[in-house]
Design a protein around this nucleic acid. Structure first.
Length: 429
RNA sequence: GGAGAGAUGGCCGAGUGGUCGAAGGUACUCCCCUGCUAAGGGAGCGUAGGGUUUAUAGCCUUACCGAGGGUUCGAAUCCCUCUCUCUCCGCCA
């Protein structure tokens, strides 16, 4: 959510910055609602002040045993007028709020203007794609021989689910463990175990609601508020500080969690249908930092580096992309995507997305810290995948495949694999 | 699933219809006193808005005592619904 003061004070500039990311803010409508709000709110509050003063007088009179009929008569008609004014104000503020909640974040000045992902800017390229002296297979063909089974998954659940057996299941687990250990030991994050189902308030806090409900799975409960399956651990991790004022000495807060993520992929029919690139359920290790505003852009660089460290340790070639204005997510002010090399597709595919949200999320959830002057101030939130586990598995299968169908295990991962140096094809797997 | 208790400011805790945004304590900030490891005195000290304003200063004002509704001229206080916490019983990974 943007600061409404910014819209009031500098509406046309905000409109222009939003236009750069393809959002058309109806500035006339906002100005109209805002003008109406001002009139109505002033009026309502004047009526409330009058009622409060009169009621106080009645109280004083009664305590002295004086007659209060005259005072009562004075405000006899006030009630209806006040109810009407309050009702109208509530309705108006609700529509202003709907408008406000639907406005995406403003892009940071360093974000390149662009129309699509074509206009994203490559910042760096790390590692060299391997040259293969045999025909390269994609992860589905490599995985098939090692325990990757979509047929059984679709029988059990449906399309866009996967099932891993044996060494491959262990590799998946090893990746998550390795990432968690690296981020806690080397990067100083606190490991957190979180709920996978969250309430609507949490989804509003990080920006999934109200606008993107169709992307989420939910669980209805009789007589109770529905719960939503988390699409990323960003939701529970960031909401830890919702409605809190954190002491400045505790900053920065650094959290890491390994969770499954659930996405309806409602808008993705027909896209990435082969393999485990785009699934309804996938695991991810998520990094979240809550920091002072002055630090958030430095932290974005740092946190992106934490994700990169995993790719480097796993010997996976990747590039770092700065997303252009129109390719960024709704809540982000600036985003780097890390894209891993997939040799079968001869292309780089997203494996991590690291963003600075500034106060966009924390304003919604009233997550604050006490500044040096003693005043509460909104935190900035920064998060990123470190990394998506499923896609990392895909990248390892493709990049480290051998001519005989085996897959080499990167050195860093071997302690988590019981010392195994390679996964070998299993007949009947 | 059954029975009961509760939710008040950073924390503890008083307050069952009226000058209560809320006693008292504690923490914190400033000042004074004292002087040696701790104490005494005084003052200040919630949050989010709105209006005015060059102003995140001041002044005026509204809302907030778990959330939402209701009764009333007036609600922390009375009524209803919900959420959460605790205790006991049952069940259970």
């Amino acid at each position: 959510m943007l600061d409404i003061q910014l819209l009031r004070n500098d509406l046309s500039a905000v409109g222009a910055r939003l236009a750069s990311r393809g959002f058309d803010l109806d500035t006339a409508e906002f100005a109209r609602l805002e003008a109406e709000r001002k009139t109505l709110q002033t009026h309502t509050q004047a009526l409330q002040a009058k009622r409060n003063a009169s009621s106080k007088q009645i109280g004083i009179a009664k305590s002295k045993g004086e007659d209060t009929d005259a005072l009562m008569a004075e405000i006899a008609d006030l009630g209806a007028e006040l109810t009407a004014a309050e009702g109208a104000l509530t309705v108006l503020q609700a529509s202003l709020n709907v408008l406000l909640m639907g406005i995406p974040n403003l892009p940071h000045a360093s974000v390149p203007a662009g129309r699509s992902e074509e206009d994203n800017v490559e910042i760096s390229r790390v590692g060299t794609p391997r040259l293969f002296d045999f025909p390269v297979k994609d992860h589905v063909d490599v995985g098939e021989k090692l325990g990757l089974d979509f047929e059984t998954a679709s029988k059990i659940a449906g399309a866009r689910f996967s099932l891993l057996r044996g060494g491959l299941a262990r590799l998946h687990r090893a990746l998550a463990q390795f990432m968690l250990d690296t981020h806690t030991a080397a990067h100083d994050y606190t490991e957190v175990y979180v709920p996978y189902l969250v309430n609507a308030e949490s989804m509003r806090g990080t920006g999934q609601l109200p606008k993107f409900e169709e992307d989420l799975f939910h669980v209805p409960r009789a007589e109770m508020e529905r719960l939503y399956l988390i699409p990323t651990a960003e939701v529970p991790l960031t909401n830890m500080v919702r409605d809190q004022i954190v002491a400045r000495e505790q900053l920065p807060l650094r959290f890491v969690a390994h969770t499954p993520c659930f996405r309806a992929e409602a808008g993705a029919y027909g896209r990435d249908t082969r393999g485990m690139i785009r699934q309804h359920q996938f695991d991810k290790v998520e990094l979240v930092q809550l920091v002072e505003p002055k630090d958030s852009y430095a932290v974005l660089e740092q946190l992106t580096g934490h994700a990169e460290a995993i790719l480097q340790a796993l010997e996976l070639p990747y590039r770092k992309m700065l997303l252009c204005t129109r390719d960024m997510g709704f809540s982000a002010a600036k985003t780097y995507d890390l894209e891993v090399w997939l040799p079968a597709q001869q292309t780089y595919r997203e494996i991590s997305s690291c963003s600075n949200f500034e106060a966009f999320q924390t304003r919604r959830m009233q997550a604050r810290f006490r500044a040096e002057n003693g005043k509460p101030e909104l935190l900035h939130s920064v998060n990123g995948s470190g990394l998506a586990v499923g896609r990392t598995l895909v990248a390892i299968l493709e990049n480290h495949q051998q001519a005989d169908g085996a897959v080499a295990i990167p050195e860093a991962l071997r302690p988590y694999m019981g010392g195994v140096a390679a996964l070998k094809p299993v007949t009947g797997a």
